[in-house]
Structures are given as C-alpha cells and as structure tokens.
Computed example of a mutant assay.
Amino acid sequence: MDISGIILAGGKSSRMGVNKALLHINGVPAIQRIKDVVQGLVSELLLATNEKDMYEFLGGRIVGDIVKDKGPLSGIHSGIHASATDRNLVVACDLPFLSRPVTAELIRIAANVNADAVVPIIKGKIHPLFAVYRSTILPEAERALENNRLKMLDLLRSLAVYEVTEKDFLRGGVEEALIQRAFFNMNCPEDYERAVAEEAKLTARKA
C-alpha cells in the first residue's frame, strides 16, 4: 500500500527530564530504532519536529508544525498536510521495541478497512500515537487545533475509527511477545531503565 510514515519527535519529554527520542538503547537512539523499522515499510518517511538541527542525523524529510505548541496533534496535522499519500502511519518517538511484524500488520489491516483512523487497543489501552490516519482527518484536526481541543481521544470521537486488538495481530501471525513489547513506551526514567534492562536480556538471549 502507498503509505507515508510520520515519526513524531516534538514532545517536551517533561516526565523523562531529557529528550527521550535521543536516549540510547543498546547504543542506538530510540528514534533511530523506530526509523529503521518504519523506513522499509513506507513509501516516504517524514519527521515531525520543530528542532530540525537535532534530528538531521536521521537523514529524513523534516516537517515543522504549522500550528505550534499544540502537542502531538500539531505534529500529526503537519505531517499529514505535507504527506503525498492518503494513508499515513503515525509513530511516537518513545516506542523502543517497535518491530517490523507488528508495524507491517497494522499497515496491512489499514489497507483493508474503510476508516479515517486505524488505532490499536492493547490490554484495553488505546494507542493513538501508533496508528494509521487518512488525509480525511485534516478538517477535523484543523478544527480541533483552532478550538484548542488537543486531546487525541477527543479527535478520535469525531472520526470513523477502526479498532485493532491483540486478536487481530495474532490472526495476522504476529507473536504475542512482539505485540506486548511493541506497545511499551518510555515516559519516565523508570521506563527507560526498564527498556535498557529488557534490551540487555534480549541481546543476551540471542548471544
């Protein structure tokens, strides 16, 4: 499917205390790990951030916010506005264990449903920052930004949403362990420590 990838790298990382996109997991910045997964699955890759200099090392196309200081919704809006495709895979920069099987299956599911947004719900938790959005969401996103309604859940209520659960990924042949790892996100220092420890275990297991 012709689809763009939009990596969100504009967060303030207030709970982490440092830029979580650039935290290293096994010697590689978290955002680089995500880019390496997404790049081979999309027709174009965009990086949504207002800090161009900080992310030039990634080598992708950088898109700044059209409407600034409005959180993830700003990045999604700007990324889709700049995208050349109707469907867009949006990925937050704090998913260090994102994997190709999980990402490819989400894209495959999105290609076969007619919805504005295809959003995973894992263990009962919705993940609007690892989801597929169509360009049809732009009018609603713009209205939300204009009215300062910045919560992603509020936006989703105004869209046609297809929910993807663990069962959908399992039916697509994705291993349970990969599903659970993919949706682990780093919000605070304890999460980062856990990610580093988990990666060390995985590396030792493969050795």
Rank of each mutant, 00 (worst) to 15 (best):
M1G: 05
I7C: 08
L8Q: 04
L8N: 02
K12Q: 12
V18E: 12
N19W: 01
K20F: 09
L22T: 04
L23I: 11
H24F: 12
H24N: 13
V28Y: 03
A30H: 05
Q32L: 08
I34D: 06
D36G: 01
V38A: 09
Q39E: 15
G40W: 02
L41K: 01
V42S: 05
E44A: 01
A48G: 11
T49R: 01
T49G: 02
E51G: 06
D53Y: 11
D53K: 15
E56N: 06
G60L: 09
I62F: 12
G64D: 10
D69C: 05
D69I: 02
P72N: 14
P72W: 12
H77D: 04
S78G: 08
S78M: 09
I80A: 07
H81P: 00
S83R: 01
L89T: 00
V91Q: 07
L95S: 02
P96D: 05
S99V: 08
R100L: 14
P101T: 02
T103E: 09
L106A: 08
L106N: 06
N112H: 13
N112K: 06
N112D: 15
V113I: 13
D116M: 10
V118H: 07
P120T: 06
I121E: 15
I122C: 08
I122K: 03
K123R: 15
G124V: 06
K125E: 14
I126A: 12
S135Y: 05
T136R: 14
P139Q: 09
E140G: 00
E142G: 03
R143T: 07
L150G: 00
K151I: 04
K151P: 00
M152S: 01
M152E: 02
L153E: 10
V161D: 03
T165M: 07
K167G: 04
G172Y: 00
G172K: 00
E175H: 13
E175A: 15
E176F: 13
Q180C: 05
A182C: 15
F183R: 11
N185I: 03
N187P: 00
E190Y: 03
D191P: 05
Y192C: 08
R194P: 00
R194V: 01
A195P: 01
V196L: 13
A197P: 03
A197H: 11
A200W: 07
A200T: 12
L202N: 01
A204W: 12
R205Y: 13
